[in-house]
Computed example of a mutant assay.
Amino acid sequence: MPRQETLKKLRITLVRRRDALRRALAGDLSLLRELHQQKTGDPLDAAADTVQDELNSQLVEVEARELAAIEEAIDKFETGNYGDCEDCGKPIPLNRLKALPYASECIECKRKSELGDSGEGTKTPWNRMYDMTEADSL
């Protein structure tokens, strides 16, 4: 199947996902408002409600980020830039777009951005961290 046909199908997928996320977010936000208006019974109920509120708000945040990425991808269709890497400008492979239709970078550029600009892995190696106060006392 030619690339343009696949991209058109991905646009349909993005629009459907966007609409579903909008409906879900509207429902999630109204549910959170309702829960805040209800009074809880005892401290254990209040603690359980607080935990549930936190989980719900984290879910809303993740859904909102995904929705923003999807809307940005749909906008790229209008400008003719959908499917092109934001960093190198090369076409993003179709397999990547099928897996993540709102991908804005090819795999190579995404890896570079995750490792840092130098490409040498500037992230902190958390598996090699140790207690600095203990090391300072030696």
Rank of each mutant, 00 (worst) to 15 (best):
T124I: 06
E72C: 13
I70D: 08
W126E: 11
I74Y: 05
E5A: 12
T124V: 09
L59H: 09
T13S: 15
G27R: 08
L59Y: 04
E63V: 01
D84A: 08
L21T: 02
L97P: 00
A47P: 02
R3T: 10
L67V: 04
L59F: 08
K123L: 15
R111N: 10
K76M: 13
P2R: 15
L94I: 10
A135P: 05
E78L: 11
E108I: 13
E134W: 02
N127C: 05
A99W: 01
I107A: 11
L138A: 13
V51N: 04
Q38I: 15
L35R: 09
Q38V: 13
D19N: 13
T40M: 14
L115W: 00
R96H: 01
A26Q: 11
C109T: 10
R16C: 12
L44G: 03
D42Y: 00
A103L: 05
R65I: 09
N81W: 02
G121I: 06
D53P: 00
Y130W: 06
R33M: 08
C109I: 05
T50K: 01
R11V: 02
M129T: 11
P43H: 03
T133L: 09
L94E: 11
L14Q: 07
C85D: 07
E54S: 15
L25Q: 06
Q58I: 08
D49W: 00
T40V: 07
N81D: 13
D53H: 06
A99K: 04
G83C: 10
I12C: 09
M1V: 09
L7H: 03
L94C: 07
L10K: 01
R33Y: 05
L100Q: 11
P91Y: 04
L32Q: 14
P101K: 00
N127A: 12
L100S: 06
E114V: 08
Q52V: 01
L25I: 05
A64E: 11
N127I: 02
G80C: 07
E34K: 00
E34S: 09
L25K: 01
D87I: 04
A68T: 12
Y102R: 00
A48D: 13
C85Y: 01
G119K: 03
C106F: 06
M129R: 15
C88P: 14
A73Y: 01
L59E: 14
G41C: 08
S118W: 03
P43E: 13
R128M: 14
R17M: 04
E105V: 07
E71K: 00
F77L: 09
G80N: 03
K110Q: 07
H36P: 03
K110C: 04
S118R: 09
E54D: 14
R128Q: 15
K9Y: 00
D75R: 12
S104M: 05
E72A: 15
E120V: 10
R3L: 05
F77Q: 10
L67F: 03
V15P: 06
Y130C: 08
E72K: 14
R23W: 01
D136N: 07
L44P: 02
K110Y: 04
I107G: 11
R33L: 10
R23T: 10
